[in-house]
Design a protein around this nucleic acid. Structure first.
Length: 474
RNA sequence: GGCGGCAUAGCCAAGUGGGAAGGCAGAGGACUGCAAAUCCUUCAUCCUCGGUUCAAAUCCGAGUGCCGCCUCCA
């Protein structure tokens, strides 16, 4: 089955064919580490990390790079405000990023390069552009001359003349053209700087991604992804500088996700309508936040609300429950080996069908909401089977469990392996025994009290026809 | 002004020509000592108006409302 992805460059869904068979090189624009990330920042990280998981599931070897922007105006301003150095600020928020990333169940990229650690490569790239006549130096500021790059605007569908008209930015009159952008910025007093052929300064914003993408992944890569707001100018400029320098296509598939809205407006730090991931982590589980993000198609807008997160919690729990139900049944005595009845053969077929549908959905431009719906479809089927009183087939239970661990766990990352409920402490064991005795005596009051007490200790107790079942509150 | 997106149930969200998926919430029922979990049943004139078609949520046209990018931004 072929994976199709919507390529911003062609504005069409295209079949995904990697440059090198069996291997995928992808670069995700990471955070500028001047503050905590918010849920809008987290969306592309979750989406494209999930895409990476899916590519791996499909058997690709994925090389995934995600950068940290650790030098720019915002970094400098915030460092000044906090009275620390830019480097200290970066260090702090890189650590904080990883705390949030772990909460979101994000796997690490193969490399997390930082702009300031690649000044040599950046300078070399600018020099190359200068040699080829695409860059010009004015008093220590180096600009990219957009008019020299004929494909400028191909990603964002803009043409140069319109861009000129629409320019709202305060224009640096020294530039040859209003839309020329900075490759290297001369440092002002008090700002961090690095020596360069053009004097002391620092890299422009766009050049770092070009330099690091090329360094770790090569001149042409398969996938470059980020939020839609990066299409212009960031990614447009990356294309210009990279392709001007190498003469090669920079990226085969450009992927962009839609925004997260809060109060009907794009969530953004400058508007101040943000919800930090750190804030959410105090009230919701990472699984639920992940589910929330994956519950809409990645290119659609997604509205943030507390209610949405609560619904996501409940939905995740339904999937966790089906796994719990399966595991509970597997521990029962009435388990059958091998022999399958017709009904059971049918269930296995339905499981395969659901798996296939799940894959088809993701193959169709990574349609996670549809994929998720198939997890629920099969949940109904398997729960129905589990609710019957007959002996259960071990094979059916195992395969079903596997289905969820593979798709909900490994691929989507919306469930984690649970702490084993078997490692109960002695106190809880005692309470369980006590309650069992009370129930035998039909002392419901005491029995209910103990159930309440267990709940306070983080264990939810459920009575089933096959004995008590325990569930941990996370 | 240029480029682009969105509008489907109480809430979320798929579907882009022929059955309106799925989740959350709600209602009723089954099971249970009670809960919980689970199962069964139930829950949509697809923003408006025209048009094309045997057939439209889906295609075309007009309109309404909301939003984004063109400035740092995921």
């Amino acid at each position: 089955m072929a994976l199709k992805l919507y390529n911003t460059l062609s504005q069409k869904k295209e079949e995904f064919i990697p440059l090198k068979k069996g291997e995928v090189k992808m670069y995700i624009c990471g955070p500028t580490v001047y503050n905590f990330i918010h849920i809008g920042n987290a969306r592309p990280f979750v989406i494209f990390e999930t895409l990476k998981r899916y590519l791996e599931y499909k058997g690709y070897k994925v090389k995934w790079v995600q950068n940290f922007t650790d030098i720019d105006d915002k970094m400098i301003n915030n460092a000044q405000k906090l009275k620390i150095t830019v480097a200290e600020l970066a260090e702090r928020f890189i650590q904080e990023y990883f705390v949030d990333a772990d909460f979101l169940n994000l796997q690490r990229a193969e490399v997390h390069p930082r702009a300031t650690e690649h000044i040599t490569e950046i300078i070399a790239l600018i020099e190359k552009l200068e040699r080829k006549g695409y860059a010009y130096n004015i008093e220590g500021d180096v600009f990219f001359e957009v008019n020299k790059f004929k494909d400028y605007g191909k990603l964002s569908g803009q043409n140069i003349d319109e861009l000129r008209k629409g320019a709202r930015i305060e224009v640096d009159l020294r530039k040859k053209n209003t839309i020329d952008f900075a490759l290297w910025k001369k440092s002002k007093p008090g700002e961090p700087f690095w020596p360069s052929p053009w004097g002391e300064g620092r890299p422009g914003w766009h050049i770092e991604c070009s330099a690091m993408s090329m360094k770790y992944l090569g001149e042409t890569i398969d996938i470059h992804a980020g939020g839609s707001d990066l299409i212009f100018p960031h990614h447009e400029n990356e294309i210009a500088q990279s392709e001007a320098a190498t003469g090669q296509p920079f990226v085969k598939y450009w992927l962009h996700n839609g925004y997260i809205f809060l109060d009907n407006q794009k969530m953004s730090k400058s508007l101040g309508n943000i919800m930090k991931v750190r804030e959410l982590s105090k009230r919701f589980r990472g699984e639920a936040v992940r589910y929330f993000i994956l519950s809409a198609h990645y290119r659609s807008p997604l509205n943030f609300s507390e209610e949405q997160l609560q619904q996501a919690e409940a939905s995740v729990q339904r999937i966790e429950n089906v796994i719990l139900n399966l595991e509970h049944s597997l521990k029962q005595s009435k388990i059958k080996e091998d022999i399958l009845e017709d009904q059971e053969k049918q269930i296995l077929e339905q499981k395969n069908e659901s798996a296939q549908q799940f894959i088809m959905a993701l193959d169709d431009d990574f349609n996670t909401p549809v994929a998720i719906s198939h997890l629920f479809n099969f949940a109904k089927i398997i729960n129905r089977y589990l609710a019957s009183n007959e002996g259960k087939s071990k094979l059916v239970l195992e395969e079903s469990k596997n289905f969820y661990y593979t798709f909900a766990g490994k691929v989507l990352g919306i469930i984690k392996e649970k702490k084993k409920t078997t490692d109960l402490n002695q106190e809880i064991e005692e309470l369980l025994k006590e309650r069992e005795q009370a129930r035998n005596k039909k002392d419901w009051k005491k029995s209910d009290q103990i159930r309440e007490e267990l709940k306070r200790k983080g264990v939810i107790l459920e009575d089933t026809p096959e004995g008590v079942r325990l569930r941990r509150i996370n």
